[in-house]
Amino acid sequence: MTVKRQVIERESLGHWLRRHENHVLHGLLMLLCLVMLFPILYTFITSLRPQGFGLSRELFHPDGLYLGHYERLLSQPRFLRNILNSGINSVGGALLTTFVTACAGYAFARLRFVGRSSLLIFILAMMMLPGITSLIPLFKIASDLDIRDTYFVMIVVYGTYGIPFGIWVMKGFYETIPRELEEAAAVDGANPVQTFLYVIVPISLPGLIAVFLTNFVFNWNDFLTALILLSSTDMKTATVGLFDFQSQLEGNNSELLNAASILIMIPGLLIFLAARRSFLRGMVEGAVKG
């Protein structure tokens, strides 16, 4: 008797799960989202409390939200300078990447030439050898050439780091353009250069924007390269500034430190939210040919 009843109960639980499967999955996903957002939300809440409030058990100060940390940061010349440096390096690097990969991607997608496949593999292999193994020699080379602490070196290095990814994305984009367009241009007497400049580039704007935005965010978030190549206070980017800030403030004014990390997070986050579709697609194409 008891055995039979157990079997019935287990079946009905299984049934219940199967019937409400989607609800269960939605519930689990919401829980996961909460877990993923928790560090950010907690940091944000902390940034709205006055200094030293970390010890308190209450969520916020009785007087309400405290905006003093944000006011202080946004009126501090050094912090603003760091943000400006990040902006210049990120935009410059992303523009460089976009330009060179718009060209190279087309050659790899559509043109036949000797060495095409091996050059493509070479570039991919470079992507697989991440920055870190070349950073020490890069530091030495930049020191020897006396170009550390310049926008130039940051833009060139960022511009290069984005190349393998950019070529992959642009190549994928060009491959979706129907060949008839190029054939029609050729029939009209356009040479390959004209076809590329006047037919292909204008309709590739969405791909170019995707490459630019993705690389902008990568450059904005870069921490290690900037840490190694920049040492003067005037040239440091926001991420390196935050690293210095971390060692100075942690424990005694974590609230201010958290406000700084929230401000630095915002540009990348907004761009991602605005262009998430092309971000996600680009990342899949960049790693696994989709």
Binding site: I40, N221, T239, L269
Partner: peptide
């Protein structure tokens, strides 16, 4: 996906 869009140092501070 949001955490992937944060800098390592921002994530580290958090």
């Amino acid at each position: 996906f949001i955490p992937w869009m944060l800098s390592e140092i921002v994530a580290g501070v958090m």
